[in-house]
């Protein structure tokens, strides 16, 4: 464990807590894409298949349970909690996210480190996570004004993988034979997808204006 990875995990945890806070306290999921949340459930479900078979550390297992539990409960809230579901704009959140999964599955079957069930599922979860934010970014373009909590959620979610990139650089230079191109490239693509959001988020913060992505 290094400081970059810890910062990444804490930023990721913060993003999830911000979203849960928004949904649980103000009972609203306005501006939040259910499609992205569903994709994250699949990302964690396929990423943590080994949660009961391989033990790395208490921290590792605890964080896996937190990410699994929070992503499932966010989807549950948005789908089945009456008050929250009412605030979900289904008309705008129309990204066909199941179509995102197909290329990720195919790519995972083609490009992986080892052709085993676990490894292919794990690689699939990496590819899927890289594009999971797309429905949310599309929804952002459509809904003109987004509230601060949603903006913070996306900012933290994008930032965590940025810290992971620093972690991979650190590990590359400090651990011999630590080379994982698949992880690195999908992590880089994932972070780059947030580039324009980060830009407009920074502008809105600098000019102290509401965050608005150009249509």
């Amino acid at each position: 464990m290094n400081i970059f990875r810890l910062a990444g995990d804490m930023t990721h945890l913060a993003s999830v807590l911000v979203l849960l806070l928004k949904i649980h306290t103000i009972k609203s999921c306005a501006g939040v894409s259910l499609k992205t949340q569903e994709l994250y459930v699949i990302v964690f479900a396929t990423r943590y298949l080994d949660i009961f078979t391989s033990f790395v550390s208490i921290y590792n297992s605890l964080m896996k349970l937190i990410f699994l539990g929070s992503s499932f409960s966010i989807v549950w809230y948005m789908r089945y909690h009456k008050a929250v579901h009412r605030t979900y704009d289904r008309e705008q959140d129309t990204f066909r996210h199941w179509f995102l999964m197909l290329p990720c599955i195919l790519l995972a079957l083609l490009i992986h480190e080892k052709f085993t069930f676990f490894e292919v599922m794990w690689t699939f979860s990496l590819y899927l996570e890289a594009v999971a934010i797309l429905p949310q970014l599309v929804l952002l373009q459509r809904t003109r004004n987004i509230d601060n909590l949603t903006g913070q959620y996306i900012f933290l979610l994008g930032g965590y993988r940025g810290f992971y990139i620093l972690n991979w650089i650190y590990r590359y230079f400090t651990e011999p034979h630590y080379v994982h191109w698949i992880t690195w490239i999908s992590g880089l693509v994932q972070t780059l997808l947030y580039a324009d959001f980060f830009y407009y988020y920074f502008l809105s913060w600098k000019n102290n204006k509401k965050l608005q992505l150009p249509a």
Partner: peptide
């Protein structure tokens, strides 16, 4: 034989 390196990252 080369052990499958356990995934230590989240």
């Amino acid at each position: 034989e080369e052990h499958a390196e356990t995934k230590d990252e989240l």
